[in-house]
């Protein structure tokens, strides 16, 4: 495919000799009932990078990211074909349990969605469902995760208070911390700042930059500046297709496709 060709050229330009894939999507098609929502998606996503997915609403970007950890299964009437390989394992394979996939691949949602429990219990939840009961390990992980999400200093005196007492931005960082507790390989973020104010948004963006050192991050955003600021690579989705996928600088400065250019320069969407 041409996309791959372009990409490998870019890789050489960026001087990366080795690129390990976390996700390799091959000819993915997805239907909601009769609606063909994703059409022939081919995407290779690199380890320890921030990959942004942009596009107008309804373009399939949210559907795609939800397919990566099979949250899409929760929507009734969804059909897929093609394959998505996560670390060379087909995620649609019966032997690859969704529970394992979702433990390895964390997700942060559009609206902060902490459980109606204490801050501590929110983070301990993931550990407990996976059978980790050792109190010491849990305590350590709670602190470590909150630090990792840059929230520890703000909440260390009240980790046993309800999570609903936190501000929206803090709640979203708590949700990130909740992910980190399971030490995932990939973190999927579905418009994580769309419900937040600019200051909280900035904090999350800083956090993403930092998390990138240790995790692979795939982020869906409707905010092009955000994609430009934080991502290494950007995929532009339109009407269920990948129009262009490239190094972020290229997408924003010299896109190959005129539709990308139109979208970037705000002519539609």
């Amino acid at each position: 495919m041409t996309l791959t060709a372009v990409k490998s050229k870019e890789n050489n330009q960026a001087g990366q000799t080795e690129n390990v894939l976390v996700y390799n999507t091959k000819d993915l098609n997805l239907w909601y009932g009769d609606h063909h929502a994703l059409k022939n998606i081919n995407l290779e996503i690199n380890e320890r990078e921030v990959t942004a997915i942009i596009g107008p609403s309804g373009c399939g970007k949210s559907t795609y990211i939800k397919t990566l950890n099979r949250m899409i299964d929760l929507v009734p009437g969804v059909k897929t074909n093609g394959s998505i390989e996560y670390r060379e394992r087909d995620i649609f394979n019966k032997d690859f349990l969704v529970e394992e996939l979702r433990t390895r691949v964390g997700m942060v949602f559009q609206k902060p969605n902490p459980f109606p429990k204490s801050i501590y219990e929110n983070i301990a939840f993931g550990l407990k469902i996976h059978g980790i009961k050792n109190k010491q390990i849990i305590n350590e992980t709670v602190e470590k995760s909150l630090r990792g999400a840059a929230l520890w200093e703000e909440v260390k005196d009240r980790i046993h208070e309800p999570a609903y007492g936190l501000s929206g931005g803090q709640q979203q960082r708590l949700c990130i911390a909740r992910c980190l507790a399971l030490e995932p390989d990939v973190i999927l973020m579905d418009e994580p700042t769309s419900a937040l104010d600019p200051v909280s948004t900035l904090k999350i963006e800083e956090l993403i930059q930092e998390l990138k050192q240790r995790y692979s991050i795939i982020i869906v955003t409707h905010n092009m500046q955000q994609a430009a600021r934080i991502s290494d690579r950007t995929a532009f989705f339109l009407n269920g297709e990948v129009v262009e996928y490239d190094v972020t600088d290229t997408i924003f400065n010299s896109p190959a496709d005129s539709r990308t250019d139109d979208y970037i320069s705000g002519r539609f969407g």
């Binding site: 950890n69 949250m71 929760l74 529970e99 394992e100 996939l101 979702r102 433990t103 390895r104 964390g106 997700m107 949602f109 609206k111 969605n113 902490p114 459980f115 109606p116 939840f125 993931g126 407990k128 469902i129 996976h130 949700c175 909740r178 992910c179 399971l182």
Partner: peptide, 20 residues
């Protein structure tokens, strides 16, 4: 959203039902 959060952490269906 709460169910999604639970599933997103790798919880099984019954874990999500019984704990969330």
């Amino acid at each position: 959203e709460l169910k999604e959060a639970s599933y997103g952490l790798g919880a099984t269906k019954w874990q999500t039902i019984s704990r969330v």
